[in-house]
């Protein structure tokens, strides 16, 4: 294995991070939107979200990627491999985020909502000022956990011919007939990516704790 091979795997890592981040950035608010639809029991839309979540959640990422890339053109929706990859990962992470946000919303204390209503806060303001800042903190550990799972399910998009960490590593292994070094490099890269997520979560939690401490 040469330094060029390491560089190739590193490029795969850049791609993994890029599509993971794209799907997380879109999937977080999307999941929150779906959770709010379920929480407010908006008729019809509520049922659609239930069906969406149960179908997508049951589908392996590989299957979903193939479905989106090969089956959607049949109904006139076609997209490039990268877009299809991002759509796949976004749809998949959004379903899990929906359930995480919904759990946080359902365990939100109703007396706080009631006092917000009594103080003349309309629905949107109640959510923005009272509910959201609190569920963000209660949902954060589960959301970060889902982000790391998301990074780890990203190799599925290799079926679309895209080169991520795992695909880059296996290509190096196939060429050099020595698969161990490239996969060690791949593992190290995955660990670093996940560590960044976990560290940012710790940072946010520590900052919150310091805020609370400072107010004592």
């Amino acid at each position: 294995m040469t330094w060029y091979d390491v560089y190739a795997i590193f490029q795969g890592a850049v791609f993994t991070v890029a599509i993971s981040l794209a799907s997380i950035v879109i999937g977080l608010p999307l999941g929150l939107g779906f959770a709010l639809i379920r929480w407010s029991r908006i008729p019809v839309l509520d049922r659609i979200v239930v069906v969406y979540v149960s179908v997508i959640r049951a589908s392996p990422a590989v299957t979903l990627a193939l479905l989106i890339f090969f089956a959607l053109p049949v109904v006139g929706i076609s997209m490039g491999a990268v877009t299809a990859a991002i759509v796949t990962l976004t749809l998949s992470t959004a379903t899990f985020n929906t359930e995480i946000w919904r759990g946080a919303l359902m365990s939100f204390p109703s007396d706080q909502l009631e006092s917000a209503r009594a103080f003349g806060m309309p629905r949107a303001l109640r959510f923005r000022r009272i509910v959201f800042p609190q569920i963000l903190h209660s949902a954060l550990p589960a959301l970060v956990n889902e982000m790391t799972l998301q990074v780890k399910s990203s190799p599925a998009i290799a079926v679309l011919g895209l080169v991520d960490i795992t695909r880059a590593a296996s290509r190096v292994g196939a060429r050099t007939y020595d698969p161990l070094p490239p996969f060690v490099v791949a593992l190290v890269l995955y660990s670093l990516i996940v560590a960044v997520f976990v560290m940012s979560q710790r940072f946010i939690e520590r900052r919150r704790a310091a805020e609370l401490e400072a107010a004592r």
Partner: peptide, 21 residues
Amino acid sequence: ELAAIRTRIGMVFQHFALWPH
């Protein structure tokens, strides 16, 4: 509309219902 009129009525709750954040 209800929110607008409720701003004119204050309420104090049995379990306080303060906003902890």
